[in-house]
């Protein structure tokens, strides 16, 4: 799973995710991409599950890029614990995703395979997404 190597603060506040994305809106590497249309904090486990779904479907050939990085820690209190006594311990990492952000990109596979792989990956994510294509790829060039 993706996780930072080193962080300045182990625990940070949750905050609120507002507005639309202004970066990472267009395809930078591949011909196909999975674009978020909703706001969410996407868990590193979900990203990993989506990546596995993508790479398993394309088997061999093709290349995948992950365009987000889970760098925001989240914490959890142990089960059957009373409230209080401080913040819980770090549990995992999330990526803050706003509408418009490209999550995955893919290249080196045909259109049908790419779309199906993206559909399978989208099922692992907690948000609605759309599949986008480079214009030349859409024309079959």
């Amino acid at each position: 799973m993706l996780a930072p190597k080193k962080v300045k603060y182990r625990k940070i506040q949750k905050g609120r995710v507002r507005g639309a994305e202004s970066r990472g809106l267009t395809l930078a590497f591949g011909d196909y991409g999975l674009k978020a249309t909703e706001t969410a904090r996407v868990d590193a486990r979900a990203l990993e599950a989506a990546r596995v779904a993508l790479t398993r479907h394309i088997k061999r050939g093709g290349r995948v890029w992950i365009r987000v990085f889970p760098d925001k820690p989240f914490t959890k209190k142990p089960a059957e614990t009373r409230m209080g006594k401080g913040k819980g311990s770090p549990e995992g990492w999330t990526a803050v995703v706003r509408p418009g952000r490209i999550l995955f990109e893919m290249e080196g596979v045909d259109r049908a395979t790419a779309r199906e792989a993206m559909r399978l990956a989208a099922h692992k994510l907690p948000i609605k997404t759309i599949v986008i294509e480079r214009e030349e790829a859409a024309l079959g060039a």
Binding site: M1, A44, L54, W65, F69, W93
Partner: peptide, 27 residues
Amino acid sequence: GAAAAAPAAEGAAKEAAPAGAAKKAEP
């Protein structure tokens, strides 16, 4: 841990070590 736009590693070993990785994932 990899750069945000780094190519997703296709190595299966990486995928198959969630337990070890989970410990690493803690800050």
